[in-house]
């Protein structure tokens, strides 16, 4: 589904978090948002998710305005946020309350299989490692088949190896299910490796400083001349965006 952000502003207690921000994401594309801390990138994601409402402007999904959380929009938080009193299967099936028991079981089993956690279905969240827990969170968001999946620094708390592993995993899931992905990250390498387009944000007030298309065909190398060139472009733009704020 096409996502559009039109001239959106958001103020918290008078402080301008986002100012006149516009953005379009075509269906099935992967957009990465990078920016220094306090540039409002997480706020933007929360607005798109319907968790906050914009002070001005509008967010729309295929033309219909987003004012509250929507079925078509999933969100993966920075932390797994699994409910400790439900098993892994219970957590993954959390959004399937309206489905029949049999259907829910089948969908949950399939989703767990997809993220490689079939063996952990009956484990409690406390028994999972950080990477496994974030996988379960990903499965919980995907099992309801969202058209748009938002990810708020989903891998930032993981070690480098687990992070790379989950990035590849996310790409596999995306290739299979083709949701529109919007990923907030502070990791330039991650943004370039995953995204079709990188949006660089600047702070005070939060706004888009630059949009950079990553025209590298998939599957991508993590290190190659083309990837390195794109990474340098994004890093330079990010440096300028952060520097501009300091000036």
């Amino acid at each position: 589904m096409a996502l559009s952000v039109r001239d959106v502003s958001k103020a918290f207690d008078g402080a301008q978090a986002l100012s006149h921000l516009s953005l379009d994401v075509e269906p099935g594309r992967i957009l990465a948002i990078v920016g220094g801390s306090g540039c409002g990138k997480s706020t933007l994601l929360r607005l798109i998710a319907g968790l906050e409402s914009a002070s001005a402007g509008a967010i729309a999904l295929d033309g219909s305005p987003v004012t509250a959380p929507r079925e078509e929009i999933g969100l993966v938080f920075q932390e797994p946020r699994l409910l400790p009193w439900l098993t892994v299967a219970g957590n993954v099936g959390f959004g399937l309350e309206d489905s029949s028991e049999a259907e829910r079981k089948a969908l949950v089993a399939q989703a767990l299989e997809r993220v490689g956690l079939a063996a952990k279905a009956n484990a409690w969240p406390r028994q999972l490692s950080g990477g496994q827990a974030q996988r379960a969170a990903l499965a919980r968001a995907l099992v309801v088949r969202p058209k748009v999946l938002l990810l708020d620094e989903p891998f930032s708390a993981l070690d480098a190896i687990t992070r790379a592993d989950l990035q590849d995993h996310l790409l596999e899931l995306w290739a299979e299910l083709r949701p529109t992905l919007v990923l907030v990250t502070h990791d330039v390498d991650e943004a370039v490796y995953l995204a079709d387009e990188v949006v660089v944000m600047a702070a005070h007030p939060g706004r888009i400083a630059e949009r950079i298309s990553i025209d590298v065909p998939r599957p991508r190398e993590r290190r190659s001349e083309t990837v390195d060139r794109e990474t340098r472009r994004v890093a330079r733009a990010l440096g300028e965006a952060i520097g501009r704020r300091a000036a």
Binding site: A49, L51, A68, P69, G74, L75, R81, L83, F94, G95
Partner: peptide
Amino acid sequence: TVEVGRIFR
């Protein structure tokens, strides 16, 4: 945790 509930409407 409450936000998880909100996301699932």
